[in-house]
Amino acid sequence: MTAPLTRRTTATALGLAAALALTACGNPDDGATAEVAATPGATARTTIDTSPDRARITTDKVASLAAEVPAPIRERGTLEIADSSGSAAPLTFYATDDRTVIGVEPDLAYLVADVLGLEAHLNPVSWENIFVGLDSAKYDVGFSNITVTEERKEKYDFASYREDNLAFEARKGSGWKVTGPKDVAGRTVAVSSGTNQEKLLVEWSRTNVKAGRKPVDIKYYQNPTDTYLALRSGRIDLALGPNPTAAYHVATAGESEVVGTYSGAGATLQGLIAATTKKDSGLAKPLADALNHVIENGTYAKVLSRWGLSDEAVTESEVNPPGLPRSNK
């Protein structure tokens, strides 16, 4: 499947603006909800709850699927979930109490645990410690906007649950448009280390060098706040990250714009986000079956709609689908 660079920019940005914009600021009356116009100039408004006691979307246990869970996990009765504490809205972020973790990733993880008859234990950790914890069996599964890649499939199994789309974000009014490697030649671009975004950016930089153009000046920052400060101050030209977080920032901050989107697996393959487990742990198939169940019963669609991510829905969860190809050296 091909994924044109600008395929989802407008649709996702407007969807997030409708469902999410200004949630970080809260409602001045109760600090827990916010209202935003569905589109610029529109009068219809949508409210989203960011309070710590917000009700999660739930579903019933399915005994036949719960029986598929590996015995040690089933007997323990809990699903140990790793989620990145460095993520951002609407993926994973803190509610208005600054303690309770909310977002599309934990919502889907809890929904899967419901189906499998397990108590969900969410463990907010740094990005790299998700994989350290999976390797050591400290955690059973990672739900943290993890892209399926061919390299990762050597160590991990995957159960896909959302399309993976990336976005280039620039200061508002930049007039730039990113449609391919040549558009970032010589530009200073921020990206998170160890992500598939970094792999793609490095590959684009190599492509530019081979074509006689300037390489990309790649910069790394510790957290989204630092990245956006650098973008606002002009220390970087662009930031490359997950499309949902970029569109959310555009909608809430009003100081930047999405200037190009791209599949997380490259130009010829639609990237996929997946629940990630240690290879051969026996958990990937039960996770995929649980995800397919919630896709079928409609609760999956409700979760994505709540966070403005309906455009990134998949029709089926797959075990170890084709992933981001290895980089060309």
Rank of each mutant, 00 (worst) to 15 (best):
S51L: 03
K61M: 13
P72I: 10
D135R: 14
P106W: 02
L200I: 15
L238C: 04
T6Y: 02
N292C: 10
D217N: 14
A265C: 12
F93D: 10
S87A: 12
T46R: 12
K153I: 01
S310Y: 00
A67G: 02
D140H: 10
A34E: 06
I236A: 04
V202S: 04
V112S: 03
V319P: 13
E119Q: 13
L304C: 07
V294I: 15
G175W: 11
R171Q: 14
D60K: 15
P106G: 03
V191M: 06
I73Q: 06
D83K: 06
N297Q: 15
L200E: 12
V250D: 00
S193W: 08
N297R: 15
A63M: 08
L229V: 14
D60N: 14
T10G: 03
S144G: 10
A247S: 12
L283R: 01
S144L: 06
T195D: 08
L16H: 01
V258Y: 00
T315D: 14
L111I: 09
A89M: 07
E257V: 07
F93L: 12
A71L: 13
P52D: 01
Y161G: 08
D226H: 12
F93W: 15
T100D: 05
V36L: 10
A120Y: 04
A88H: 14
A63C: 08
A95F: 11
P90H: 07
K172H: 00
R74F: 07
V209H: 13
G212T: 12
R162M: 15
A185T: 11
H249G: 05
L16E: 01
N223R: 11
G266M: 07
R187S: 06
A24V: 11
R45D: 04
A42F: 02
V319D: 14
Y300C: 05
V209G: 12
R54N: 04
W307I: 02
S87I: 02
A11G: 05
G117S: 07
R45A: 12
L134M: 10
I146H: 03
G254T: 09
P124Y: 01
V314H: 06
V189F: 12
T277I: 09
T96K: 11
A246V: 00
I48P: 00
A265E: 09
T2M: 04
T33Y: 11
D289Y: 07
K214H: 13
T23Q: 01
V104F: 05
L309R: 02
K177D: 12
T207M: 11
D107H: 06
T268N: 14
N297H: 13
Y94A: 11
D97N: 05
A230N: 09
S192E: 14
A17D: 01
A71P: 05
Y94P: 03
G31F: 11
P124W: 01
T245L: 05
A11W: 00
A21D: 04
A67I: 08
T96M: 03
V303F: 06
A251Q: 00
L16A: 03
V250M: 00
S87G: 10
G241V: 07
L118T: 05
L229W: 10
N243F: 09
S233M: 05
